[in-house]
Design a protein around this nucleic acid. Sequence first.
DNA 1: TCTAACCTGACACTCGGTGTCAGACGCGAT
DNA 2: ATCGCGTCTGACACCGAGTGTCAGGTTAGA
Lengths: 205, 205
Amino acid sequence: MSAAPVGTREISRHAVRAELARVAFNRFCLTGFNQVTFADLSEAAGVSRSTFLRYFGTKEDVVLFVFDPVGDVIADALDAGRANQDDWDRLRNALESAVTFLVRDVQELVTILGLIDETPALCARLREKQAEWRPGIVARLQETASSADGPAVIANVRVAAALECLWIVLGQWSASGGQEDLGTLLDAAFAAFSSPACRQSDAPS
Amino acid sequence: MSAAPVGTREISRHAVRAELARVAFNRFCLTGFNQVTFADLSEAAGVSRSTFLRYFGTKEDVVLFVFDPVGDVIADALDAGRANQDDWDRLRNALESAVTFLVRDVQELVTILGLIDETPALCARLREKQAEWRPGIVARLQETASSADGPAVIANVRVAAALECLWIVLGQWSASGGQEDLGTLLDAAFAAFSSPACRQSDAPS
DNA sequence: TCTAACCTGACACTCGGTGTCAGACGCGAT
DNA sequence: ATCGCGTCTGACACCGAGTGTCAGGTTAGA
């Protein structure tokens, strides 16, 4: 997935990137995202500030570049089992693929999510990435559709809503320290769309 | 709504803020958001850079401060007609209040939305504001609930989804130059939640 | 081996944003 | 009227993010 690096230069670049991110991540967790400067990071990593900036365009990307493939993961996962499933089921399953991709090391992901949660700049940048994914996901959701399908806005809204579910669920999960089951949490979140939309009648007290 | 300014100082400050924003907005539309610096803005407005910075903490706020009350508008509107309506209906009506609040001058709103749309930094900051509104809206949605109401995550997801609808609808509306009816667009967007979730069967060809 | 592409570090620069400071201004009390 | 108080303003210094350039070293591939 996501264009495997063939050239030796690509391999090298990828490895250096990973190492720089690792060193930087420790600093961020230790001191806080905003308190750490590029000068600190480059010094800690043993490279010049210029070089560090060449590997990561912005400070946010040092943390968030691991999320880059998620958009493609979700879009690709929409193809699987596209028969006999409605939009919500397909989206829910695609999100399952996304969290499976993200959860390699539980502790690491919990830490990253915690760092993001307490840093507005990281939240903003992550939401920006999410917005970039949406068109591709919407297109994939529609291209396998039976064309006699409501206006495009419907698909747009559903994808946007599903992506919101993803972050809400991940937030809940990381708040529990990675204990809860992500599949169960996804089901609970998607119940917002399928359940009988509560409170059309008073409480039976 | 939103704490009417009582003191003379508050009135003055509010007026200056509006004037500075007006001048700045022209510049932004003329040259593009990123190309305009605080030095340009302050010169155009006839004040020092320091003063301009004192009225708007960030460059994004120069454009986006008009959206600040929207969160409260939505939360307040949730109270109206809280009987015999399910979550989706209440949220849809609350969004109607929000767009009514925003649409004073059609042309101006279309221009602002266009500027936001082509400026990633503005999109990001607006999404940040939206995230700040959410807790308050969720609380209001739940406080009038019959408590025998699914887990909190349900309300969270629904509010998040509704807010996504708001921006999708506003995007569509501004793309049409403010011609289409916002109520109709809202209905079309919310159909994503109530319609029979397409494609559980093949196309009848 | 040779050449061309690339990587690196150093430097200069712009701009967003924060903080400080002294002076000007408005306003209420005496 | 004027005195004192808090506030607003402009000037300045400062920091950090991000961009661009350039010379020299390294490596890949013919």
